[in-house]
């Protein structure tokens, strides 16, 4: 709670700039980051390279970097499967989960960060417990519940299932971020005559942007790539999400790795784009918001 005592409005730290760093330190810094980046990227690059090999080249014992590079796998996936349909389905589900998830998680996270109310501890525990009970065992009872509500094979059904995963996690995480925002900001809002909701919406949320960005991306990825719920709940191939549709390349004995890798690349691109969109908020955050107050 050290920070809370500090003043509210602050500028970004001016730590030692690049000029203040020795050449050796620079090399070590860049070297470390370059190696880490290489490890992070390598599997993805390998995926990309495999996807531009011929359809059946993946299981050759002679491993090569390039093998007749072509886009045949992509052409097949885009033209011969319901890929685009599945893409739209996934965008709908993931988009809705992100927007609703972040709003719910932010309001809950703010409440548990700022207020001590009867039931506070129960809420904290409840959010945790939802993370503790294995999803694998929740699936069947949840399916029966959804069946009773007529939500099987519908987008809202799948979305609600994702929210049960994403919201508790994000709410907990956002509580951590809200805790770092000085409470004086809320008080200032009250003094300025803002409603409680106005304080939350106009003052606190903008300050929590980095946390919100992480929460948004987490919700998005949860919905974007989830397999277990989607496989069980979506019973018609018109309503498959990408993760489910991609599994149709894995048959009883064989996997069409050429097509799988091509669709994996196609699936990863939107996720990467979403990250690019949210990532700039990671660095602004407190600076941008705090200068206003």
């Amino acid at each position: 709670m050290t920070i809370a005592a500090g003043p509210a409005g602050v500028g970004r730290a001016k730590q030692k700039g690049p000029k203040g760093r020795s050449t050796a330190a620079s090399i070590a810094l860049h070297g470390t980051l370059a190696v880490a980046s290489l490890i992070a990227v390598f599997p993805v690059v390998w995926l990309l390279l495999t996807s531009i090999k011929p359809r059946n080249a993946w299981d050759s014992a002679t491993v090569t970097l390039f093998d007749h590079p072509n886009l045949g796998n992509y052409a097949f996936v885009l033209s011969q499967t319901k890929f685009l349909r599945w893409l739209v389905n996934t965008l709908i589900v993931a988009g809705a989960t992100t927007v609703i998830g972040v709003l719910l998680a932010a309001s809950t996270g703010y409440a548990v960060s700022r207020f001590r109310f009867p039931g506070f501890r129960s809420v904290m525990w409840m959010l945790l417990i939802t993370q503790m009970f294995p999803v694998a065992i929740l699936i069947v009872p949840l399916y029966n519940l959804m069946a009773g509500l007529g939500l099987i094979n519908t987008f809202p059904g799948l979305m609600i299932a994702y929210l049960t995963t994403a919201v508790p996690f994000c709410a907990w995480m956002l509580k951590g971020y809200f805790d770092t925002i000085p409470v004086q900001i809320d008080e200032a809002g009250q003094v300025d005559g803002l409603t409680p909701f106005g304080t939350f919406w106009r003052l606190v949320l903008p300050l929590a942007k980095p946390g919100l960005a992480v929460a948004a991306f987490y919700s998005f990825i949860t919905a974007w790539a989830e397999v277990a719920y989607a496989t069980t709940f979506m019973t018609g191939d018109e309503s498959y999400t990408l993760a489910v549709g991609m599994q149709s390349f894995v048959s009883e004995y064989r996997a069409e790795w050429g097509y799988m890798t091509a669709s994996a690349v196609l699936i990863a691109i939107p996720a990467a784009v979403v990250f690019l969109l949210v990532q700039r908020h990671l660095v602004t955050g407190l600076t941008a918001g705090a200068t206003k107050s």
Partner: peptide, 13 residues
């Protein structure tokens, strides 16, 4: 961006 790439790729992939 490079370092966060593993998170952007769906876990099952």
């Amino acid at each position: 961006v490079l370092l966060v790439l593993p998170w952007a790729v769906p876990a099952f992939v």
